[in-house]
Design a protein around this nucleic acid. Structure first.
Lengths: 254, 254
DNA sequence: GCCGTTATCGTACGACGTGCGGCGTTTCCT
DNA sequence: AGGAAACGCCGCACGTCGTACGATAACGGC
């Protein structure tokens, strides 16, 4: 429970929340807010300050409401995160260019996800105990599968191809975002950090023992000084992944 | 700070810890423990109960020591996690079979990481603000780079290839581990969970609207009932990734 | 034996998620 | 019209967390 997780509560309640199945109010005072409104406030907070700053108290503050009032809309923090997730899943485009082939479509899927994670880096830290079966998540899944539909793959292979791309993007974004956030989180710029770490590491690290790491580490370090290089690394990996899928599809059609 | 993160403290202190650079004891009572011992206890706890159960109090209990005593060995929880990480990085093999080509070597790297993450799933949740420059992490980096050394790639390309493989493995393990842990974390088996979610979802989800998701979801759901299928999905993706790298290396040599 | 150093640890503070129970508002039923 | 039931709102409290602070006691060098 301490960990920021989703889908840890009652699945029934979760699904009702995600699909907006309110049991139809009957009596009592009018709700002053809505699940949507709460989710929006929570997303804004998480976007701005990270998942570690997302607390029920802070969300309530944002809405000028007492903390416990949130619990009339949402059974627990886990379900709130479910709603947040499904909501941001709704942000990705859901149409392909008409002329695009499967490769262009898959590339779009990868880049849309890359963008989505960059807009909401807290998504990377949410551990999902079960898939969040909200409408937007399902629409997104369907859309992504259609990228490789009709190319002669079995259903299982289609799922595996989409998983492959999703998994790669997730990992790549994670590296990139962590690198980007290092400065703001620690209050130390890369330069300052190396100024401290460098000399100490030199005393203790023997380049002769690990020549490959020394050489490549230096090269990569230099390259990454240039802004935008994580994006190039992402593009590089994506091309390899798509090449691998291309070989598979070609072999499958033959 | 609330988030389970690493490398958030003083880099100098971190490096001293990681490389065992104690400032040489002089006076005072003999330490009853060691950073190593504390890290081992912490790793055991995190392995058994997950990162959310890893607290300074619980680690101290395990060592039969007051909570605050830990702070004489480790400046904060973040640095402790750094030490834990570098320690488990030491677990992966560091030699290749002599006969192995780059592809077999890369596959070994991927599978060793897959195994490592499965042994220590908490690694997936640690957000790294900076690379943990410990001896084992460097040795591991060097070892992995050697998988693709001497194949005609530039230093930067070597780094990108290793990143690609690492990123894919990270993403794939994440999916697999989350699926595996869903039952123990929520106390609901997959069957029980579907028994509740299924009927509700049927009321609300229209297969005609998302035929691809419906079809593939059903197929994938069935396949994953069979134990060990996440591993097959991992193997599938890995083959594609390696194929993509193969194409790149081939083009590079030509 | 004494003093400076250092390990150990009890207490405390401000965060967190959330259970419980009281209050006041709104709606339905008579 | 009036009473009762349902429900939104919220203050308080509990047990958790990381860790700052200061007291105490063990030890090494003189």
């Amino acid at each position: 429970m301490t960990a920021d997780s989703s889908s840890a509560g009652d699945p029934r309640r979760s699904l009702e929340l995600l699909w907006g199945l309110a049991p139809a109010r009957r009596r009592g005072p009018r709700p002053r807010h809505s699940v949507e409104e709460i989710a929006v406030a929570a997303i804004e907070l998480a976007d701005a300050e990270g998942l570690s700053a997302l607390s029920m108290r802070r969300v309530a503050d944002r809405l000028k409401v007492a903390t416990m009032s949130l619990y009339t809309y949402v059974p627990s923090k886990a379900e709130l995160i479910d709603v947040m997730l499904d909501r941001v899943y709704g942000e990705t485009p859901k149409t392909y260019a008409k002329s695009a082939g499967w490769r262009a479509r898959l590339e779009q899927v990868a880049r849309d996800n890359w963008d989505l994670y960059h807009r909401h880096p807290w998504m990377l830290q949410v551990v999902m105990h079960r898939p969040v079966l909200g409408p937007n998540m399902i629409a997104k899944f369907d859309f992504e599968l259609r990228a490789v539909d009709g190319e002669g793959l079995t259903d299982l292979e289609m799922d595996q191809v989409i998983s492959l791309v999703s998994n790669y993007v997730h990992g790549a974004v994670r590296s990139a975002v962590e690198a980007m956030q290092a400065e703001s989180r620690t209050g130390l710029s890369d330069a300052q950090w190396w100024e401290i770490s460098g000399p100490l590491l030199e005393k203790v690290f023997d380049p002769a023992q690990f020549p490959t790491a020394a050489r490549v580490g230096a090269a990569a370090g230099e390259a990454y000084e240039a802004v935008g290089d994580p994006e190039r690394a992402f593009a590089f990996g994506l091309e390899r992944v798509l090449d691998g899928i291309e070989a598979f599809i070609a072999r499958r059609s033959a």
